[in-house]
Write a protein that binds this DNA or RNA. Structure first.
Length: 432
RNA sequence: GUGAGCGUAGUUCAAUGGUAGAGCACUGGAUUGUGGUUCCAGCCGUUGGGGGUUCGAGUCCCCUCGCUCACCCCA
């Protein structure tokens, strides 16, 4: 801001620091724990792939491919792109490693940075993080339900049970074209009344007119035919079975007939988890089924379903729950004098080897300033080591929170704090 | 890519066109071994950058960079 710093993070890219990083850890760890109970295993794929994988997989006409990819040539003249999403890479990984030879369905999750060259805004970054899951090899709605159940489980464990889950079916190769025709016929008469974007969509992607937010478009599409009324037999059964399963599992959801996913590869089930507390970019997680993608990318004809969570958005919600807390060290050792310094450092090492967070003061500074430092670090206990203590073979301890203090034999200092660790669980609430 | 708002100390913000300030934070101290509260002191700026108008610009105008929010689109 002051213009003095020469280097700044690139636009739309940011540092994640404590205490926010604690929220990220919590999300990552909770997700991994939940996913593993559903039999999903982690994979890690490169963050760059050949550009063709994305253009083919995500779709030539999509905004992501058309204008949002970080694409460059490597020194061998190959066109490389930073991944704008995770599914294409996961599909490539599935095909390349011939994972279809393993028992189906194969279930995987991943997390990491994605890159899209967009104008940043609240909840949107050029480098952003997703946790994604993909399950290959089953067309059964039971698998769709399992994913939704798993997603719900995760949200509940994170303390976000009130988020809205919306589902829809957008049909398949067989029934979507016929629905498009019906929809276009319905819209034809009022075509001139739509916003410029929708005029364009009328030609390029009529389904998207359904989720336009412009008021007059909302009005003009009143009474439009629903895609779910025009699904083929198989798609309809799939969708109704999914709803039955969700109800049996007591997973709250609403059917949103106007929800359409942006990426080309989705078929049948589409779903989205949104929050009312995130500004314009309110999607926390989204996903759906993509039964044609694996084959289209050159693999076997294997159906699949998956979803992705936006890390920054989840973390944003958790932060609002004011669970942003930070801790200080369990023990701060204030030593006075050279001999005490050596003794203090030895004790610090000992305690650390037992898993206790220990900070040490500057033995050249006054006890007062060491105490102040201990307080600012939000230390749970201060250990004071001076002439008196050392000659007596003891240490003075003080608990900053309540001011209690006392003396105890140095020989037992390990157990002394180990005991207190369990009960005190020092956690200090901090503003922001 | 389009539109709008905002850039002053580490931070949050002041300053009818007339000498750039305050709180918080940070560092030290208040008689030699006890933190937080209080008191005192110290540190803090090319007012994002460049040009223009003016006797004089943080303030007005233009350009530029950056941030923010929204659209498009999306996690």
């Amino acid at each position: 801001m002051s213009g003095a710093e020469k280097y700044r993070a690139l636009k739309g890219m940011r540092d994640v620091l404590p205490p926010e990083i604690d929220l990220w850890h919590r999300v990552e760890q909770t997700a991994a724990a939940v996913f593993e109970t559903y039999g999903f295993r982690e994979i890690r794929t490169p963050i760059a792939e050949s550009t063709a994988l994305f253009t083919r997989g995500i779709g030539e006409g999509t905004d992501i491919v058309e204008k949002e990819m970080y694409t460059f040539e490597d020194k061998g003249g190959r066109s490389i792109s930073l991944r704008p999403e995770g599914t294409a890479s996961a599909v490539r990984c599935y095909i390349e490693n011939q994972l279809h030879t393993l028992p189906s369905p194969q279930k995987y999750y991943y997390s990491g940075p994605m890159f899209r060259y967009e104008r940043p805004q609240s909840g949107r970054f050029r480098q952003f993080y997703q946790i994604g899951v993909e399950a290959f090899g089953s067309a059964s709605p039971v698998l769709d339900a399992e994913l939704l159940s798993m997603l719900r489980q995760l949200l509940v464990r994170l303390g976000l049970p009130e988020l809205n889950v919306q589902i829809n079916s957008i049909g398949c190769e067989a029934c979507r074209p016929t629905y498009k025709k019906v929809l276009l016929e319905f819209l034809e008469g009022s075509r001139d009344g739509f916003c410029p974007d929708c005029q364009r969509r009328y030609m390029s992607n009529p389904l998207r007119i359904l989720d336009c937010k412009v008021e007059r478009c909302v009005g003009l599409r009143q009474g439009a035919p629903r895609i779910t009324d025009h699904l083929c037999e198989d798609c309809r059964t799939h969708f109704t079975t999914l709803q039955t399963l969700l109800s049996k599992l007591e997973i709250p959801f609403v059917v949103n007939h106007e929800m359409v996913r942006g990426l080309d590869y989705y078929t049948r089930t589409a779903f989205e988890v949104t929050s009312g507390n995130l500004g314009a970019q309110n999607a926390v997680a989204a996903g759906g089924r993509y039964d044609r993608l694996v084959k289209e990318c050159g693999g076997p004809d294997v159906p699949a379903v998956g979803f992705a969570l936006g890390m920054e958005r989840i973390a944003g919600l958790l932060k609002q729950l004011s669970s942003a807390e930070t801790g200080g060290p369990m023990v701060f050792i204030a030593a006075m004098g050279e001999y005490a310094l050596y003794e203090g450092l030895r004790i610090a090492e000992k305690l650390r080897s037992e898993g206790i967070w220990v900070e040490t003061g500057d033995s050249a500074a006054s006890l007062k300033s060491q105490m102040r430092k201990a307080d600012r670090l939000a230390s749970e206990y201060v250990v004071i080591l001076g002439e008196d203590e050392l000659t007596a073979g003891e240490f003075t301890w003080k608990r900053l929170k309540d001011g209690s203090d006392g003396r105890a034999p140095l020989a037992g200092i390990g157990p002394f704090f180990a005991e207190r660790m369990v009960s005190s669980r020092k956690r200090v609430n901090v503003v922001e």
